[in-house]
Design a protein around this nucleic acid. Sequence first.
DNA 1: CGTAGGTTTGACCGCCTTCAAACTTGGTGG
DNA 2: CCACCAAGTTTGAAGGCGGTCAAACCTACG
Lengths: 244, 244
Amino acid sequence: MRDDEKPNLRRLPLFREMSTPTFDNLMQIAYSQTFPPQLELIRQGEYADFLHVIIDGSVELRAAWNGHDTVMGVVHPVSTFILAACVCDEPYLMSARTRERSQIVMIPAADVRVALRRDSDYAMAAMRELAEGYRTFVRYTKNLKLRDSLERLAAYILYQSHKLDDAPCIVLPVEKRHLASYLGMTPENLSRSIKAVQDHGVTVRGVQVTITDRARLAAIAVPDPLIDGPVTTAVSPLPQRSVS
Amino acid sequence: MRDDEKPNLRRLPLFREMSTPTFDNLMQIAYSQTFPPQLELIRQGEYADFLHVIIDGSVELRAAWNGHDTVMGVVHPVSTFILAACVCDEPYLMSARTRERSQIVMIPAADVRVALRRDSDYAMAAMRELAEGYRTFVRYTKNLKLRDSLERLAAYILYQSHKLDDAPCIVLPVEKRHLASYLGMTPENLSRSIKAVQDHGVTVRGVQVTITDRARLAAIAVPDPLIDGPVTTAVSPLPQRSVS
DNA sequence: CGTAGGTTTGACCGCCTTCAAACTTGGTGG
DNA sequence: CCACCAAGTTTGAAGGCGGTCAAACCTACG
């Protein structure tokens, strides 16, 4: 891989705190590649050959069973995916496909495991990365089990806006069909939910979404940092013991 | 905590490979406690004070939002829970409550974090534990998104049997109301699904479930190791059943 | 026994899916 | 530039899965 790409990787939480020798060692055997859109990088059930790091573009995590398939998540730069399969040396539970032309760095899983054993700072970082991934999935599952589809859509819009500094105007970053699958509904139902949500402080034209009344939208979504994302402005009292 | 409890902990993947000084150090500040049934050990939103290790009994992980709540998982001995919140030093995403009288070892989260930084073998073990937890949740979410409720019930029965060495006869280990919530349905709907599944190679009387035709049941469940769990499951040194 | 909590059953309703068709949208080539 | 096509989206109608509500039925336990 090219030298000018390494700093991007080095900035990642996963690589930031590892020792320089370990990093350089990994980088020597890593290689960077640019893939076309809609390419299946990883197929569920296969074994983990490479840790993937997405540098540019975006990647969709999908799962399939018995003829159905569904979108489980989307990975944006700069972050890693399928770390868990690499650590466990077990089959992928999800497939991964590029949504657009994407640049990806691949590091042989065996070398990652060696580096983990050798560099405890690296292991710590991997642990934090995995813990965050775990929590992301807990939140995703809570969202699916606790909210109905209109509420999920409202929360999604609100959260997309929140990520852009509470911008009132956002653009749906994905094809609606895939967004529907991610949110656990059919494209038709998403279409109807989009129509329905416009009675609650939102106007949608195509992929342009404008929040006209945040409070009304929030009344539907009932946003919750324990579902929608990490706490940024938490007002948490001191930890307290529940039992004596 | 008592000395005779330490070997049980030491056998855990999380503690098996850590250095003896680190282990002894942690054990000095850990303490063991037995809790009554239906006690809320952890409330979602609070911060992680203690890493919990369940030694005996069973614990239910639940999530709540906007007046609803749902069962997200069940933890059996001997394993840890809420490791991710401890590692991240962030609020719990789920609550935990004892299902029965349960013995639990609690280790201050701050000390766990210190030990993680100090002992790289320990960090490696924590990483593997987290990776397994992550994969458990991916599987759970796939189950919810890809199967309908009858298929989920069939797969659940098949998997419970599989864990008991493909025993044809199993006992539902949880109250049906909680099983329904775990499987993502209402108690009423579980009741109907139980009736329906008896046309497909299963007879159910109370909590007694007998598989009369495994192939027919599998035709409904379409079991898949990428959803239902690895064929080679964990070694549980303690008996599984625990209904009094 | 009698009560309380859990389970089952029935009736009804609504969310969501399915199927089908019309309608956009974007890209391509005449 | 426009015609055309393919893919995606929207709309409509119909139906099913699952949820809600209410009552009856266990079952455990005091």
